[in-house]
């Protein structure tokens, strides 16, 4: 029993965190809100250079051949810095799906490009109405019932949908089967789609942990500094208890997310339950933390001039994508009670 990351995993994570601190400061997130494309290709390229983008691509295709235990701490850092690009879709979902389920020709066509940063991939599973980052993607992986397809981006017609998080880019998409390559069909496709969904949910949960931790850090700094009645507002017990509640939520969501990473990496028999618990707790935590952060910032947190709203809105968006807390709680209930 050893419920911790290795030194190498932590070093990798810290290097990525340092990279985001330099390359994706809040001004960059603000730029993403305001710029039409809103994606800095040089950051993606640098992440590919560091091995982050190819992290889950098998070594045979030029990647790092690593798993969710290596990846999720890195996605936590992406969440902490509110980095707005499709890491979950490309790295956590599509690369492992192609590696496990695609025929050799399709895998060979796309995986090396993912690993070297030249192919950005996004995904739409049944039940997901919108696609993230179709505007910069080269490849869409989509489910239709018991079939999974790879569709080159030029064959996808997309209509933007506007998220409350102005740094997100969501799209409704249409495409024709004639332009698509079949990856896998039948039960194997359903299993692959299930696994893809679990990966997306767990990866999003990891981002929510980082978002939550950052909102707590921003709020602790703010309430320690801001004075009313001649003292820092952080000395008031009502404010302290809001923040203690926030810390409590994240502290018990975090181990659930790491356990989901472990479950995915080791194909645990209970992986559905482990992932749903992680996403349920991470979504709930982020929503509570966002509320507490806004309340204890007061009106300054209620402006778009202050940075806090980037984190609030990303939290709301991610808390309800890849299944919200209620959906995942129902899934756990089903697994526990209907067995």
């Amino acid at each position: 029993m050893n419920f911790a990351f290795t030194d190498d995993q932590l070093l990798f994570r810290d290097a990525v965190a340092e990279f985001f601190a330099n390359e994706c400061p809040p001004e960059k997130v603000r730029w993403s809100w305001n710029d039409e494309v809103g994606r800095d290709a040089s950051i993606w390229a640098a992440l590919a250079e560091m091995g982050v983008i190819g992290l889950t691509v098998p070594e045979a295709f030029g990647g790092m051949g690593m798993n969710e235990i290596d990846l999720l701490p890195i996605l936590t850092e992406a969440g902490r810095y509110a980095y707005p690009a499709p890491l979950v879709e490309t790295v956590a979902v599509v690369a492992p799906l192609l590696a496990e389920s695609a025929p050799a020709a399709i895998a060979e066509k796309w995986l090396p490009g993912i690993a070297d940063g030249s192919v950005i991939a996004t995904v739409q599973l049944d039940g997901q109405p919108f696609v993230n980052d179709m505007h910069i993607a080269n490849l869409l992986i989509a489910q239709r019932g018991d079939q999974l397809f790879a569709i080159p981006a030029e064959h996808v017609r997309s209509t933007p949908q506007i998220s409350v998080d102005g740094a997100r880019r969501l799209f409704s998409v249409e495409w024709d089967e004639a332009d698509a390559e079949l990856i896998v069909s039948g039960d194997a496709a359903l299993r692959a789609a299930d696994r893809a969904f679990d990966r997306g949910a767990a990866a999003t949960a990891a981002q929510l942990i980082g978002l939550s931790e950052q909102m707590i850090a921003m709020t602790v700094a703010y309430v320690s500094d801001r004075k009313q009645f001649g003292v820092p507002i952080g000395s008031f017990q009502a404010v302290k208890h809001h923040l203690a509640d926030a810390e409590l939520k994240v502290s018990f969501a975090r181990p659930a997310v790491w356990a989901a990473a472990y479950g995915l990496a080791n194909s645990s028999a209970d992986v559905d339950r482990e992932v749903s618990m992680a996403k349920c707790f991470a979504s709930d935590a982020a929503e509570v933390v966002a509320r507490k952060a806004l309340q204890t910032h007061g009106a300054i947190g209620y402006t778009t001039e202050h940075d806090l709203h980037f984190w609030l809105k990303r939290s709301w968006a991610l808390a309800s994508s890849w299944g919200d807390a209620a959906w995942h709680r129902r899934r756990v209930a089903h697994l526990l009670l209907d067995a």
Binding site: S224, Q237, H241, A244, E247, L248
Partner: peptide, 11 residues
């Protein structure tokens, strides 16, 4: 109170 003061470092 302990969490706020000694884990989070509030005044």
């Amino acid at each position: 109170n302990v969490v706020a003061e000694r884990v989070l470092g509030l005044p």
